[in-house]
Amino acid sequence: MLIELKDVNKTYNNGQPLHVLKGINLSIDKGEFVSIMGASGSGKSTLLNIIGILDNYDTGEYYIDGRLIKGLSEKQAADYRNRLIGFIFQSFNLIGFKTAVENVELPLFYQGVSRSRRHALAMDYLDRLGLADWAGHYPNEMSGGQKQRVAIARALITNPKIILADEPTGALDSKTSEEVMQLLGKLNREEGVTIIVVTHESGVANCTDKIVHIKDGIIGRIEDNREHRASMFGTDTIMK
């Protein structure tokens, strides 16, 4: 198993203690294309933070590729995030004063990769996503879809074990949303990248092979969706 969560609990202690995750057990295998679906407040964002090593959990165990992720120092956590996980965010989270190629290079910069090598790699990834001509452009000169593709290139460049997408289509129109989801699907099928998508949109979830439903901090149904028939709206397009 690539990802294994065993009885993970998380409580927020802001005034009133809030038990957000109530014993999560989840296994995701290598090469899977999974979506975690739930309404807002269901705990899916917290789960995503824990899977992405952005936040700590209180009790339980979390393994990536057999490595226990618990009580890491900030430096170690940063290193794991850098090498193991590629993030795709709802609001793209590109750095505005850096060009597309510089944004893509950034994770390699923190790995200490040489300037010329990371530039070549970044250009390579941009090219694969059809953005080679846009390499020198700043994010505000690009469309939402282009920005998200730059972000995907950035997530892929370190060749991570997991791609973690947090509402990757949240800021995109339906057509672009579909393109992005197809792109993720293609990456999963053709390159075997493990992808976890967190969403509240059933159409988006329907693009994935497995849907994990989370409700009130507990994993509910896990749907096999290899037929992509989970959503009645999802068969043709993503409804907005």
């Binding site: 430096k75 850098n82 993030f87 505005g96 994770p107 950035r154």
Partner: peptide, 16 residues
């Protein structure tokens, strides 16, 4: 703040 958040998410150590 937001930018540093992004940097840290994609692997910047506190020291960086």
């Amino acid at each position: 703040t937001h930018e540093f958040g992004i940097r840290k998410a994609i692997g910047a150590s506190p020291w960086a």
